[in-house]
Design a protein around this nucleic acid. Sequence first.
DNA 1: CGCTTGCTTGGAGTGCACTCCAAGGTTCTA
DNA 2: TAGAACCTTGGAGTGCACTCCAAGCAAGCG
Lengths: 154, 154
Amino acid sequence: MTVMETTATGTDTCAGPPQQNRRPDGQDRYTISEVVALTGLTAHTLRWYERIGLMPHIDRSHTGQRRYTNRDLDWLDLVGKLRLTGMPVADMVRYAELVREGDHTYVERFELLKTTREDVLARIDELRGTLAVLDRKISFYADAGRALASERSR
Amino acid sequence: MTVMETTATGTDTCAGPPQQNRRPDGQDRYTISEVVALTGLTAHTLRWYERIGLMPHIDRSHTGQRRYTNRDLDWLDLVGKLRLTGMPVADMVRYAELVREGDHTYVERFELLKTTREDVLARIDELRGTLAVLDRKISFYADAGRALASERSR
DNA sequence: CGCTTGCTTGGAGTGCACTCCAAGGTTCTA
DNA sequence: TAGAACCTTGGAGTGCACTCCAAGCAAGCG
C-alpha cells in the first residue's frame, strides 16, 4: 500500500472542504496571476516559495510560464494554515522535502504534524491568557469612563 | 478624578495576579540582569525597548546603571502579552506614548485595547481552523499507519 | 591592588520573510 | 500587427525585531 494521500504524485493533501473558484480536475491549469487572486499571495511570493523548495516544481506551459494545478492550490492552502501558526518557513520546507522523499518519511511527517498540533494548542492557550489580561484592562477603562461621565453630569 | 490605574506615575498597569520573585514595593530596585532573569528578555532587548520608547525612562543608580521597579516589571508583563498577540512593536510604542501623555488619551487607549481584543479573538479562530486541518491530516496518517501495521502482520 | 563580572553607550549587523528590479520574452485584444 | 498586459529570471533591497560589538566605567572580592 501507499501512504500518499492522493494517487498519482508525491504531494500530500487530504481532501478538505471543497474549494471555491476552482476548475474541475483535468482543466486545472492556472496562471500565476490566477493563483494570486485565489490565494492572496503575491506572484513574487509564489515564485519565491518555489525557489526555496516550499512548492514542488510547478508545471510549465510550452513557453516556460507556470501553470498551477488544483493540487498545488491545496498545498498552498495547507502552507497558509501552517503559516498562521507561526511555523517558520524552513520547517515547512522540511515537511515539503519529506513529502517529496516518499513513503518512508511517513513517521517523521506524522511526528511533525503532532508536534505542530501541540504548538497550536499552546499558542491558543497563550492567547487566552492575553485575552484575560485585555478584558481586565478593558473593564477597568470602561469603569473609569463611567466614573468620568457621572462626574461630568454632577 | 484620574484615569490612571496606579496612583503616583503615568504608567498603566492594573493589578493582575500577584507576581512571583518580586521584592515588596519600596525596595523594588532591580538591576538589568535581575530583570533578564525575571522576564526572559535579554539585556539588549530591554535597553532597546527603552531606546525606542516602549519603556518609560528607567530610573538610574547614582552611577547611571538602570534600576527597574515593580511597576516596570508589570509593564513588561503587559508588553509580553501583547507581543504574543503579534501586535507590532510600533503599536505598543504608540500605546506607551498614550500612557505617557496622560488622562486625555484614555478614550484612544480604550479603543486600542478593544481593537486588540478583537484581533486576538480572530487569531484564536484562525488557529482553531488550522487545528481542524491538522487533526484531519493526523488522523489520516494514523489510519495509514494502522493499515501499514496490519499489512506487515499479515 | 588586581581580577572578574556586570553595566553603559551609539551604531552596526543578523535572520527572517518577503519584495522589488531590470531586461526581455509571451499572450491577448482591437 | 500593434499595443497593453502579463510572464520569466537571478540578484539585490526592505522592514521588522532584535542582536551584537567595542570601548570604557562600576562593583564586589581576596
